[in-house]
Design a protein around this nucleic acid. Structure first.
Lengths: 205, 205
DNA sequence: ACCTGAACACCGTTCAAGT
DNA sequence: ACCTGAACACCGTTCAAGT
């Protein structure tokens, strides 16, 4: 019976194939013109097959966003392990955030645009998003304990830092800026100077 | 009453009626589920009538965004006239930005989400967006001349300030934050403290 | 000049039917 | 259990036709 089931699968893992196909299409054509039927076609199945793995289109979009948040969390975590100094951790976290966004502009737009219906989103998406923010929170708290950043509500400080890099990321990926910032050098320079300015306002004196 | 409406549309009022209907629908159902056919229905015309006034759906969306940018520019301009001190101008500009965003979350999302195709957007939209940014630029330059903000590239300082408030606005209107910030008091408090922290990093010393 | 309904090629989603 | 095609109610856009 198990063999028969296995054979009858068109794919070994259709769920992941669909996510992969969706990510590719979002990169190609942007997040707002993603169609479930096209995703199915790209994955080589009928247009109703995705409903075996996702309750609706929103669930598939949420899965893409979730991958994005998990990747961000992993990168931020690596950064903390790589840089022992709290100042470097703070600055490099901003660099990582902006780098990831600029390298994946369409995914970034999808993660944060109103396209996702958060009311019906799976709990795992909210968890993944919170995990990413918590990495930043940890960096701020550590910087306060090491007396780099002044005492105060770490929630608010972390939100300030997140807002700044997030705003930059959204303006760049949303193509709101006149000058285009795309090269890794531009990204690093901008994230570093802007991050340093904010950190200056957060310093213990 | 129906006759009167019908007559007014024949007198060239339809364009504005469509924009007004579209804004109402975006507020009701969010920017990503706006349909041209529903806009036409709400305005009381056939679903092809909008094509007499807009080349396509994107043009209508751009018009909504343009109204938003113009309103922001006007508010920022008023703020500068109302507050003579550069510090107040800087802080209040942030308050105004966040206030406007929180009061119109769906429009804000539409203005900055990838939903707008900037390649085919009319030049007037880019002009309106640039005008809004220039208000902020003016505030920064003035603060530098009055020796509040340190010397340096005003483009970069203005971009830092814009990014921070924009990030905050996008996180709030995109419902990314656990705690909801909606009341005018919450908005003012958050914009003030966050703005003051950034300004601290920009001060002349 | 302005607006219309029919038509076309798409959508997301549902469902009875096939394997 | 997994996948299918047909069907339904939408969509943006085009076009010949009406006023």
């Amino acid at each position: 019976v198990a063999d028969k089931q296995k054979l009858s699968y068109h794919h070994g893992d259709l769920r992941n194939s669909l996510i992969q196909a969706a990510v590719a299409l979002v990169r190609e054509k942007g997040p707002h013109s993603l169609s479930l039927r096209e995703v199915a076609k790209k994955a080589g199945v009928s247009h109703t097959a995705p409903y075996r793995h996702f309750p609706d289109k929103n669930a598939l979009i949420c899965s893409i966003a979730e991958v994005g948040f998990r990747l961000l969390t992993a990168r931020l975590n690596l950064t903390q392990n790589h840089y022992p100094e709290p100042r470097d951790q703070f600055i490099e976290a901003g660099v990582v955030y902006l780098e990831l966004a600029v390298k994946n502009p369409e995914i970034t737009q999808l993660m944060f645009s109103g396209q996702i219906d958060r009311a019906t989103a799976p709990e795992s998406l909210h968890t993944a998003a919170r995990d990413a923010f918590n990495q930043l929170h940890k960096i701020v708290v550590n910087a306060q304990q090491r007396n780099l950043i002044r005492p105060g509500d770490p929630d608010e400080f972390a939100l300030s830092a997140w807002s700044m890099m997030h705003g930059l990321a959204m303006l760049i990926t949303g193509e709101q800026l006149d000058k285009s910032i795309r090269s890794p050098e531009d990204v690093r320079r901008l994230a570093t100077t802007v991050g340093a300015t904010l950190l200056d306002g957060l310093l213990a004196r």
